[in-house]
């Protein structure tokens, strides 16, 4: 048995017939071929699968596609404007905030949500705000640096690196 689901993904209207067990991340990756969103643990621990649903960062491995009915979803593919990276993506690149890159899409989506709520976070607030995202490579130092760099840039501080 399938259920029809209609939602916006990165600004485009999308409709699909899904088995109710389909996870949001499965709809995104398998049906819509948006493979930028990763699956690390599939057990709600790692944050590799984070996307925005109606402006809030969520683990898309722990949400059914049918629960996103009528919602607006933004994935990592929806951040850049054409060839211009989002300031958070640019800061991760410039600060070396990634190594293998597996955690990066989720990390960036969480970081963008964090700045939407708190445009000028302290280092402690950045670390607390990224508690749902695990990185096995970087040791987090450069991720934190990237987020504060992006924050300064997005606030328009001229002193920003």
């Amino acid at each position: 048995m399938t259920v029809d689901v209609s939602l916006q993904v990165n600004g485009k209207a999308v409709s699909a017939a899904v088995d109710p067990r389909t996870l949001l991340v499965e709809l995104l990756r398998q049906q819509l071929k948006l493979t930028g969103t990763h699956v690390g643990c599939d057990t709600s621990q790692c944050g590799a699968c984070v996307v925005h649903v109606d402006g809030r960062a969520v683990k898309s491995c722990t949400m059914l596609a049918v629960q996103a009915e009528g919602s607006s979803v933004v994935t990592i593919e929806g951040l850049a404007q054409g060839n211009t990276l989002h300031p958070m993506q640019e800061a991760f690149r410039a600060c070396h905030g990634l190594q293998c890159g597996f955690c990066t899409p989720g990390m960036i989506m969480s970081a963008v949500d964090l700045l939407q709520r708190n445009p000028n976070p302290t280092e402690a607030e950045i670390r607390h705000g990224l508690e749902g995202n695990i990185c096995r490579c970087t040791g987090y130092q450069n991720i934190v640096r990237a987020v504060s760099t992006a924050a300064a840039k997005m606030r328009g501080d001229s002193a920003a690196a």
Partner: peptide, 9 residues
């Protein structure tokens, strides 16, 4: 509780 992503759901 948990982390921001858990708190959002």
């Amino acid at each position: 509780i948990g982390d921001p992503l858990v708190r959002n759901r």
